[in-house]
Write a protein that binds this DNA or RNA. Structure first.
Length: 639
RNA sequence: GCCGGAAUAGCUCAGCUGGUAGAGCACGUGUCUUGUAAACACGGGGUCCCGGGUUCGAGUCCCGGUUCCGGCUCCA
């Protein structure tokens, strides 16, 4: 038979030849390096037979799919080692993931695993690797596979097979055996365990079977693997570096905020953190003015009837902070929208007024489950750059585009890599299919109008309408939602919102919920990690620090500070009796954008010596010139 | 909320099989008067997370709780 290679040459092989045979026919080196093959774009084992005319690609460690394959192999080796060490353990699933793999187990009663056990497990894994066990595939009937896993008392495997039969109607399944361990697995796998040159177990965590909180909690062991020790070491190094960017660490080091057990999930903002926060609120207000938003203020605590009207009482009561006032049940607001809807309803509106855009940097409280709190990224007490647009059905499309433009011109200042997600109708929803078709179509159209790439999240919309979310990743690659645009056909109904149309009849407005940053807390957390704590001039809590060389220069230093403050800049002076080297080091560690050294020469000439991160030092800069330049730079919010 | 782990000075951490709590940095004082990433000396600083138990004796062992960390579930 003939197969086609990537360079379009043909290779003649005997009928029934495998991927391994093909690799060997091309060259001995390639045969040694080969892990698997891609036949007509589909990955398969080296030992699987090829078919005539197949377009073949040999997968080696340098191929795109190789790491995933290796990590999947390693997951099987982990399972083998765990089976050796913990008799009676039940296995579930063990896939490769973005930077490694995991395997979920149910350990026998009384056995808990912690990272202290990793050494022992890794040692056992190394034995399996050293033995270079083959990954042997076997296709068996469903009956045979079920019989096997029932006999071995592996209920999770049995359930998986039963589901495969039910959902996909399979009649046979594939089993992979490496050494003493056999797993239900689609494959493919590499030829043998010896290809696993470098691996490491990383953490242990609980994980619900099938991601269902009502089912058993399994023990998940995470690890990673590479083709060389160097690559593993580099990866671990990168993880360490990422930890150094952690906003929880930098926030404390830079004196931005703190947390305390007296208020779990709520930040205490120090003066410097508050400056950053306020600078962002100012930005949002400025953008709001530009885009036709009107700021409003609504109460913090409402009678629970408002939450019943909005529907939050039924759905989110557990997650709301409830309080009491003279026998009346009140609740602290978890969102601004009911307040805004109530405000809208308090006046009559004509179509001529629409769209009405209410913004409010409102302070919100949500009683998030304790286990979900995470620094500034998931908190119970936060503020949003929130706004609600009340508009006619015809205006929705333009308003959504406006929201996207608002968000991108705002987020664009920070250089984030923003992922857009469009979430469509969930199973539990209100409104007709026609309404959903229209609403989803408008969001999609808005994204396409602006040429924005997005991911489709089917069924993930709110019960009252579809939405577009902006997602970014933190330093450790975890994805977080920032802003959003949500169409809401429910709230206007619940609050009986109307406007008088040109036809002199009452009509229902559409409500759009939108935010660019989302929560300021989360945004600042992400921003700190993104910038590694080095804020641009316009956001920096301290924009410049004046460093007198000796204390005879302190008086001149104070003059410089005054001049710069007069230009509206946030400036400090370091008058400590320390060396210049020391003052510079400390200012660098505080990540202050500008260091202004002043000595005899500067005092004589009315200048400063400017040290700026990532730039050449500039001596003899006249103070007035510097003040004008950086004031302009800050006003322009230049990066 | 669930599973696992952790908690010692402002920060980072050491403290063995139970025997009066330590370092570096930071902070304070003094000396030095400094030219682009750490001058030197001295000093102050502790509810060893909280509550209970075991013990002659608990930072250390056991139980309960709190918060945090890593995940899972959830996230209007």
């Amino acid at each position: 038979m003939r197969i086609l290679l990537p360079d379009d040459t043909e290779l003649a092989l005997e009928d029934g030849a495998t991927g391994a045979d093909a690799a060997a026919a091309i060259g001995a080196g390639l045969a040694r390096a080969a892990l698997a093959v891609k036949a007509d774009g589909r990955l398969q084992d080296l030992s699987a037979p090829l078919h005539d005319g197949a377009r073949l690609e040999i997968v080696t460690p340098s191929s795109d799919d190789a790491l995933e394959l290796l990590r999947h192999d390693t997951a099987h080796v982990l399972a083998a080692a765990v089976m050796d060490l913990y008799p009676g353990v039940k296995i579930s699933i063990g896939p490769p993931i973005e930077h490694g793999f995991y395997y979920d187990f149910e350990f026998p009663d009384g056995v808990t695993i912690s990272d202290a056990d990793f050494e022992r497990i890794e040692a056992k894994m190394r034995e399996h690797v050293k033995a270079d066990e083959r990954f042997a595939r076997e296709d068996v009937s469903v009956g045979e596979a079920l019989e096997r896993f029932v006999r071995e008392d592996q209920p999770y495997k049995v359930e998986l097979i039963e589901d495969l039969v039910r959902n996909e109607g399979v009649e046979t399944v594939s089993l992979y055996t490496n050494g003493p361990f056999t797993d239900l697995c689609r494959g493919p796998h590499g030829p043998g365990t010896k290809r696993i040159k470098a691996f490491k177990l990383q953490s242990v965590a609980g994980a619900y079977w099938r991601g269902d909180a009502s089912r058993t909690m399994l023990t998940r062991i995470y690890g990673t693997a590479f083709f060389s020790r160097e690559e593993l070491a580099e990866h671990l190094e990168r993880l360490e570096e990422a930890k150094a960017r952690d906003h929880r660490k930098l926030g404390v080091e830079l004196g931005l905020f703190r947390f305390s057990p007296v208020a779990p999930g709520a930040a205490f903002w120090l003066p410097h953190g508050t400056r950053v926060f306020n600078a962002l609120v100012a930005l949002s207000r400025e953008m709001g003015e530009l885009h036709g938003y009107s700021e409003v203020k609504t109460p913090q605590i409402f009678d629970s009837v408002l939450w019943e009207t909005s529907g939050h009482w039924g759905k989110y009561r557990e997650n709301m902070f409830v309080t009491q006032a003279e026998e009346r049940q009140m609740a602290i607001k978890p969102m601004n929208c009911p307040g805004h809807a109530h405000l809208y309803a308090s006046e009559r509106h004509s179509y001529k007024e629409l769209p009405i855009r209410y913004s409010e940097p409102g302070l919100l409280h949500r009683n998030e489950p304790s286990g979900t709190l995470h620094g500034l990224l998931r908190v119970r007490h936060f503020a949003q750059d929130d706004a609600h647009i009340f508009c006619t059905e015809e205006q929705v499309q333009d308003e959504v585009v406006g929201c996207l433009d608002f968000a991108f011109s705002t987020l664009g200042l920070f250089g984030f890599d923003v992922q857009l997600e469009l979430s469509t109708r969930p199973e539990n929803r209100i409104g007709s299919d026609e309404m959903w078709d229209r609403a989803e179509g408008k969001l999609r159209q808005a994204l396409e109008d602006r040429g924005l790439a997005y991911e489709l999240n089917e069924g993930d919309g709110a019960f009252y309408g579809p939405k577009i979310d902006y997602h970014v990743k933190d330093s450790l690659g975890r994805s977080w939602q920032l802003g959003t645009v949500q169409l809401d056909y429910s709230m206007p109904e619940r609050f009986g919102l109307t406007y008088t149309g040109a036809d002199d009849r009452e009509h229902r407005p559409v409500m759009i919920h939108r935010a660019a940053f989302g929560s300021y807390e989360r945004f600042i957390g992400i921003l700190i990690e993104h910038l590694a704590g080095r804020f641009p001039l316009w956001l920096a809590p301290v924009q410049a620090i004046v460093l007198p060389i000796a204390d005879r220069h302190n008086a001149y230093a104070s003059e410089v500070v005054e001049a710069l403050r007069a230009a509206g800049l946030r400036v400090e002076v370091d008058e400590r009796g320390e060396s210049v080297g020391r003052k510079i080091r400390d200012a660098e560690l505080r990540k202050i954008p500008l260091m202004l050294v002043v000595g005899d020469a500067e005092a004589d000439g009315g200048t400063v010596s400017v040290r700026e991160h990532g730039a050449e030092e500039a001596r003899g800069v006249p103070v007035a010139e510097l003040a004008a330049r950086i004031a302009e730079q800050a006003a322009a919010r230049a990066a």
